[in-house]
Design a protein around this nucleic acid. Structure first.
Length: 452
RNA sequence: GUGGGCGUAGCUCAGUCGGUUAGAGCGCCGGAUUGUGGUUCCGGAGGUCGCCGGUUCGAAUCCGGUCGUCCACCCCA
């Protein structure tokens, strides 16, 4: 026997014991149900990808954050940090033959090699929903509607979270109108992106550090401090390019308003989604109270497919992680009940009734019920204790007297009432008396699936 | 990657100035109960005090390192 040794989990990774997995599955079920409700079809790709796929898109500096290594064939590979490049790669080779727009969703596990914090691990699952091949604002609104409904489907409402929206083209026109030349846009976006966390004062300092003139700094600081839609309209009343750049978001809001989701929308000039590949409307979902990390982020990325060698197709989509969402649900008490349960617990009083009990159990299982029994030989009291601990709705007790009469005592563990029923009629009898709790018992086992 | 807080039973935590055999609640196992559960009562198991080293007659306690975790940066799925 080797000496005892303990193994710890890799940092930033999670174990999912049944209680935890119940929450994860609850989230997955909701994501899948809502996505399908909008007509999206599910896809997946490999968890490992060539390193180049991300260098192409985001630049070599992102390599620092990738969970990457060389494989035994000397290839530089990485655990996928996000799904969009994989989607772009998949579509690059086959989108030409596909009817547009393409509506796909996926729920990949993604990886990142960095220091973990609350809401941010080295691994997470992420709902990805994308529309490829449609450049219209209706597509932007459609994916945001999926994101909002995915969160609503988990029990959160407009008191709990908000969708902050912006448009990169609008930001570009505002910067131009403020007198920032094109070369300075990227640096400006970086400062504006941090404004929400850094505050107005630091933002002003940041903008001044970029060498912008005083009027440009004043204009942008004002927008960061009070970036309301009305404020923007007043400020640029006479600037046609800005007014025109506001139109897509107007229509976007009108569409979501017509869906009844208008209360979730909030224009926010500071939402620019880092320096990634976004080209149009961008959005993030945040919890209203706790100021956790973003629940979800996405937007339009019209040039990405081209970048990975596909046909040039416009695209829009988002990613929604399970970590922040799960913490939010926990905080709000919206986690599903994960206590064990089953329909029946079969009890035999002595070993002589075991065969009868096993046969009855198997029949009940074939009828679609979940059935347990004690694996160890023990008294009726102890077996009942186990039954209630396992969350059984009913106990089926078979002792010498029942066996002699070919019957069983069925005890309702909630009410304590019990009745004696013929063993042969057990399945039918219970189906009749418990039709409500057993919504739809599966039919008989398929041929060949149950050999005897 | 940088700076800081925290690591004691499966979980949440207490542990006095550095002092003899490290505790509680919950949970787990067993008994009261060999044909009737949940409640209750009684009992039990479970610890390298994260790990390594140092100071000391003596370390869960002080110091250094390390690992983990959390927070703030960095960055963002």
């Amino acid at each position: 026997m080797p000496p005892a040794r303990s193994f710890s989990r890799l940092p930033g990774f999670r174990d999912f014991v049944p209680g935890d997995l119940a929450l994860r599955n609850h989230i997955f079920d909701t994501w899948r149900r809502v996505s399908r409700g909008y007509g999206f079809r599910e896809y997946d790709g490999p968890p490992l990808e060539p390193l180049d796929l991300y260098i192409e898109k985001s630049g070599p500096e992102i390599v620092e954050q990738l969970y990457s290594f060389d494989d035994k064939g000397g290839r530089q590979i990485t655990l996928r940090p996000e799904m969009t490049p994989t989607l772009a790669r998949i579509l690059a080779g086959r989108s030409r033959g596909m009817p547009k727009p393409i509506r796909w969703f996926s729920m990949p596990q993604l990886f990142r090699y960095e220091r973990s914090q609350r809401g941010r691990l080295r691994e997470h699952f992420q709902l990805n929903v994308d529309i490829v091949g449609d450049a219209g604002v209706a597509a932007d609104a459609e994916v945001l509607a999926v994101a909002i409904d995915a969160v609503r489907g988990l029990g959160l409402g407009d008191d709990d979270f908000v969708a902050r929206v912006n448009d990169r083209r609008l930001v570009a026109e505002v910067l131009a109108a403020a007198g920032v030349d094109a070369d300075g846009h990227a640096a400006c976006l970086g400062v504006i992106d941090k404004a929400g966390r850094a505050g107005v004062a630091k933002t002003r300092i940041g903008l001044e550090a970029l060498g912008l003139d005083e009027s440009a700094v004043a204009t942008l600081t004002e927008l960061v401090a009070d970036g309301s839609w009305e404020q923007l309209g007043r400020r640029f009343r006479d600037v046609t390019p800005v007014r025109e750049a506001m139109e897509p978001l107007e229509e976007h809001a009108a569409i979501l308003g017509a869906m009844g989701l208008g209360d979730y929308l909030h224009f926010d000039f500071t939402v620019v989604r880092g320096l990634a590949y976004y080209t149009g409307i961008v959005f993030e979902l945040f919890d209203r109270a706790g100021e956790m990390r973003a629940i979800c982020g996405g937007g339009r990325y019209d040039r990405l497919l081209e970048l990975v060698g596909g046909e040039p197709l416009p695209a829009v989509g988002f990613g929604m992680g399970d970590v922040v969402l799960g913490e939010l649900l926990r905080d709000m008490g919206l986690v599903p009940d994960a206590t064990p349960s089953c329909d029946y617990h079969v009890i035999w009083v002595g070993p002589e009734q075991r065969a009868l009990g096993l046969r009855a159990s198997h029949r009940l299982r074939a009828a679609g019920y979940s059935v347990m029994y004690s694996l160890r030989t023990q008294g009726v009291g102890r077996q009942l204790k186990e039954a209630s601990r396992n969350g059984a709705a009913r106990a089926v007790i078979i002792g010498p007297s029942e066996a002699a009469a070919g019957s069983a005592t069925v005890r309702d563990l909630t009410t304590g009432r019990q009745e004696v029923v013929p063993l042969d009629a057990l399945t039918a009898s219970v189906q009749a008396s418990s039709g409500g709790s057993q919504a739809e018992p599966p039919g008989p086992p398929s041929p060949g699936g149950d050999r005897t």
